[in-house]
Design a protein around this nucleic acid. Sequence first.
DNA 1: CTCTTGACTGAGG
DNA 2: GCCTCAGCCAAGA
Length: 111
Amino acid sequence: MKPETLNFFDKVYEVARQIPYGRVTSYGAIANFLGATRGARMVGYAMNGSHNKDVPAHRVVNRKGLLTGKHHFDGTNLMQQLLESEGVEVVDNQIQNFETLFWNPSVLLSE
DNA sequence: CTCTTGACTGAGG
DNA sequence: GCCTCAGCCAAGA
């Protein structure tokens, strides 16, 4: 018995909340961390409810570092503004130095 | 129950 | 590196 999908949304929220300031991660990284390598879409889907939570969804982007979910934010460049406000350089909806700013959820085990 | 949509990813051309 | 196709899982109609 392992209804991981049952807590999938909650897990996504928890992991996303652990994202350090000025750092970003991808849906696939979170999904993989949860054991759902092919559940990246579910991560994004879960983020739909993240608006009502303390989940920094703006720190979560696709594997290319592209702000694919900016459309779901209130404004149009709000997501980018938030990231830049944290020191993340964003150009054309794409995070610069994505590999450097990339935060792997696995560090939770180290910390 | 079936079909569609979706904040994704990997593989192939 | 970019574009296209297929796979994946869950929620809503």
